[in-house]
Amino acid sequence: MIDEKGLRTDGRRPNELRPIKMEVGVLSNADGSAYIEQGKSKVLAAVYGPRELHPRHLALPDRAILRCRYHMAPFSVEERKSPAPSRREIELSKVIREALEPAIFLEKFPRTSIDIFIEVLQADGGTRCAGTTAAALALADAGIPMRDLVAACAAGKVDGVLVLDLNDIEDKEGEADMPVSYMPNLGLISLLQMDGSLTFEEFKQVLNLALEGCKQIYKLQKEALKAKYVAIKEEVETCLQS
């Protein structure tokens, strides 16, 4: 998995992220939306709300409820995936919801719901992190008040080497995988999962590696959010000059 030069299967150094592309406001029917490409993983997120909640009895008198659906398209993996929500997707929906919940001022919209839809178009590892990152962008795009953006990134251990942002093969063949979601400005971790095995010392190093990755992703998130409006601003300014 790691060659003699210390490079990984896709030619990356151990502490390097995959190339990331983010775009905000890609769906006009949603209140907020975002698209992210992280290496070969491609994920779309849409946010609706705050809106009136149906069924009504789920409404809370003091805050909005957050609902999240993580879903993999049937064509997102090599062997067709049944479109019905699997055990794994139900779990990831819950985990992503809980990763985003602490960032949102839910108490500002009592009796309503905020709905997040995360659609994995192509999966190559790290989709729960890419999904969380995209969902945070979509929430900000929808104009929902937040304490901070949530950036997510995985780190792990492959062939005895601690690596950042695992892809599908590294995740399956490696010794450990640890997805982390982080709110950098507040310094709070909102998701931390791990499978595989690490020593205590390795655990600390992998966690720090993942947090560094989250900080890099956070920067890209901010740029992506601003890009939508800066483009219009620049267009106007060039129009004025000519």
Binding site: A140, R147, D148, L149, M183, P184, N185, Q221, K222, K226
Partner: peptide, 8 residues
Amino acid sequence: QIVTPGDL
């Protein structure tokens, strides 16, 4: 200036 959620 444009700011994003969480900016100090």
